[in-house]
């Protein structure tokens, strides 16, 4: 096998088959892929299913704490988790730039396979295309996921007085990718928080927490997610800056570059809207998970029907937390 991906690998012929068998199918290995049919047939038993799709164009493709492959699995798993849907199956499509070294592709695929295995969600179908040099930036991945909905959640179920929780510190993913892109030396402390959230969602569901709604604050960070939810529920929210967890290094990084941590992408965080009476219990449950020690109650749902998001600042003042400005951080996921 040659050292780099060539256009022939995408032509659909012998080389494509070889690529699929030796790289994708062998890494993702399961009964569906062993058949190598054009479509994989599954049986979905009674219930409602959620389906989601996401494309991943993160630059650079390797960053501290993860890579585009791990991100592609976690991102889609988390979108399903945010609907309280247990991830069941994934698809994976690859658009590869001619000239991409094989070992890079293998590394990404291996990372995807590992994450999928750990989350018990098989990748059962996929596609591969190769485009000429310069027509794609190394590698783009799309994953689509189907999950079984365990509990119906809607923004309309949010009530005034509900509490807003988060499972850990913000801005880690965006900061890690940006730092890697700009060549900042931060070492281990600027790691992406990229991780699958289904296990903690499952835990909260099993403990019968009065969960009203969830959203994973990816692009645009907590600000974007909060504003979207305020809009769709029609209610106003208030967040307390002091209660939003952030690591010291992320905070420094943001101060230095003049970035607002609440606007920056997360890939291992979930915003939970929980009935006030269950908030404390939910917090305890989250904190019992080793990776969620810094879980925190960061805000409340207000009675007013204005769809605004307010921020009580660390200085004791208050202001409106708006939707983040578009150009802040491109190609963050």
């Amino acid at each position: 096998m040659k050292e780099h991906i060539s256009l022939s690998h995408g032509s659909g012929g012998a080389l494509t088959q070889k690529l699929i068998r030796e790289i994708f199918a062998s890494a993702f290995d399961n009964a569906y892929l062993r058949k190598l049919d054009d479509a994989s047939v599954v049986e979905l038993r009674g219930g409602r299913y959620a389906m989601t799709t996401d494309s991943f164009v993160v630059d650079p493709i390797f960053f501290p704490g993860g890579d585009i492959g791990k991100l592609a699995v976690c991102g889609t798993v988390n979108d399903l988790a945010s609907c309280a849907a247990e991830p069941r199956y994934l698809s994976a499509s690859f658009v590869i730039e001619e000239g991409l070294p094989f070992d890079i592709l293998e590394s990404v695929v291996s990372s995807m396979a590992q994450e999928a295995r750990q989350q018990y969600v098989p990748i059962i179908t996929g596609d591969t295309k190769v485009v000429p040099r310069g027509k794609a930036d190394k590698l783009f991945i799309n994953t689509t996921g189907i999950g079984l909905v365990h509990k119906t959640l809607e923004a309309g179920m949010i009530r005034p007085g509900d509490k807003i929780l988060i499972n850990g510190p913000v801005a880690q993913h965006g900061v890690s990718v940006l730092a890697a892109r700009q060549g900042f030396e931060g070492g281990k402390s600027l790691k992406s928080d990229c991780k699958s959230l289904w296990p903690i969602v499952k835990l909260l569901l099993q403990e019968d927490i009065d969960l009203r709604f969830m959203r994973d604050p990816t692009r645009g960070g907590v600000s974007a997610a909060a504003n979207e939810i305020a809009q769709s529920s029609g209610l106003s929210l208030v967040l307390t800056e002091q209660k939003v967890p952030i690591t010291a290094s992320c905070k420094s990084f943001c101060e230095i570059l003049g970035l607002e941590p609440l606007d920056i992408a997360n890939e291992g965080k979930m915003l939970f809207f929980i009935g006030a009476r269950d908030a404390h219990r939910a917090l305890r449950i989250l904190k019992s998970v080793p990776s969620c020690r810094r879980a925190s109650v960061i805000g409340d749902v207000l009675p007013e029907r204005k769809g605004k998001v307010y921020l009580k600042t660390t200085a004791g003042g208050s202001r409106i937390l708006g939707m983040p400005v578009a150009e802040a951080l491109p190609r963050i996921c």
Partner: peptide
């Protein structure tokens, strides 16, 4: 000079 803020260096 190499400067730092927390573990961030520049």
């Amino acid at each position: 000079a190499l400067v730092s803020a927390g573990s961030l260096k520049a």
